[in-house]
């Protein structure tokens, strides 16, 4: 590996560590009841986000989904202000009014949405503005595989293609749409769907940050050169489920939960009238299959993007970078906890 290659990987790994620790800080704030509502973590998406965002500069804009904190961190938005927002502080990024699903920073041209598919059209608008300004800026849309069944995202892909907008569409493929397996509900498959708009599609292993960074560099260069939009299809794991407390993850991780859920289902198997027994058993099997698939998908150390990146760095270096990131996040978290306690 060249020294610039190593330098780039070090920078990316540092970002990934920052993202991971930030997500863990969010989980802590949520579990302590300091962050309210739902909480969707981006653990597993670190390589995708760091790899893409590492190619952006001040000309560029990002449209994010409700797993937006990784991209904000990677883009350099102040960690403390993100965490303060998530605990609803008046000193948070949006004054405590937006919260974790609606994080936005005008200064960074970054906006998140809690509505599936919404980043598509927004990125088109950001792309149109960038092209009109004529400084070579690009827009990035991050969305999940479940979003490709939203009409507005399909419309946005077509619009970007028709107008040759400088947009990079990044599909984070974790194979699940909330609690439903995407493959069961996506006609024609993801790659063919996203590739159907006449724009280049790059499929990358989203656990490998260097592959993502290289593919994103090509896509961003195309956009800057006025050559139109690109799709990056990046596979990645989703170890925490759709959101913290995901019912499927809960079912598979706690024995008591599973037993409590199974009892009423047994009653539904026999109560009359209803479907024939074979159909009912197949329904139970379907639910069990989902739960099992989540369980299999969850741990897998080999699929941890951080471990992958760390293995390609000297051990001392990766350890040092992890410590730097951890300290940064812990410092921010300490301030946030301090503020939360003093407010309470």
């Amino acid at each position: 590996m060249s020294s610039t290659g190593t330098e780039q990987l070090q920078a990316l790994y540092l970002q990934m560590c920052r993202i991971r620790w930030t997500e863990q800080a969010l989980a802590l704030l949520w579990r302590r009841g300091l962050a309210s509502g739902e909480m969707h973590l981006g653990i597993g998406e670190e390589a995708v986000v760091a790899g893409v965002v590492g190619n952006l500069d001040d000309r560029d804009a990002m449209a994010l989904d409700y797993r937006s904190t990784p991209a904000l961190v990677a883009r350099g938005v102040d960690l403390t202000s993100i965490l303060l927002e998530v605990v609803g502080s008046p000193s948070g990024l949006c004054g405590g009014r937006g919260g974790h699903m609606h994080l936005m920073s005008r200064e960074h041209l970054v906006a998140a949405s809690g509505v599936v598919g919404a980043p598509g059209p927004l990125a088109c608008g950001f792309g149109l503005a960038a092209r009109t300004k004529g400084k070579g800026g690009v827009a990035v849309a991050f969305f999940g595989d479940g979003a490709v069944n939203e009409g507005m995202l399909m419309e946005a892909l077509n619009l970007a293609a028709a107008w040759r907008l400088p947009v990079v569409f990044v599909c984070k493929d974790n194979r699940w749409a909330v609690t439903t397996r995407s493959s069961e509900l996506t006609g024609g498959g993801l790659r063919r769907r996203l590739g159907a708009f006449g724009m280049p599609l790059d499929r990358v292993d989203g656990r490998d940050v260097e592959s993502v960074a290289a593919a994103a560099a090509r896509a961003v260069a195309r956009g800057r050169a006025g050559r139109g939009p690109t799709v990056l299809l990046a596979s990645c794991p989703r170890p925490e489920g759709h959101f913290l407390g995901d019912p499927l993850v809960r079912l598979t991780s706690a024995v008591g939960e599973l037993a409590a859920e199974v009892r009423p289902l047994v009653a539904e198997l026999v109560v009359r009238p209803g479907a024939p027994l074979a159909q009912r058993l197949s329904a139970v099997k379907g639910i069990g299959g989902k739960a099992a698939a989540v369980a299999v998908h969850a741990p897998a150390r080999t699929s941890d993007p951080l471990r992958r990146a760390a293995r390609r760095l000297p051990e001392a270096t990766s350890r040092e970078l992890a410590v730097v990131a951890r300290r940064e996040v812990e410092t921010a978290l300490g301030r946030v906890l301090g503020e939360a306690v003093s407010r309470a």
Binding site: T179, L265, E268, A275, Q279, R280, A283, G286
Partner: peptide
């Protein structure tokens, strides 16, 4: 099928 699992089991996939 998860959220209304009781109805799913009782009345089936159709």
């Amino acid at each position: 099928r998860l959220q209304r699992r009781g109805a799913f089991v009782r009345f089936g996939a159709s």
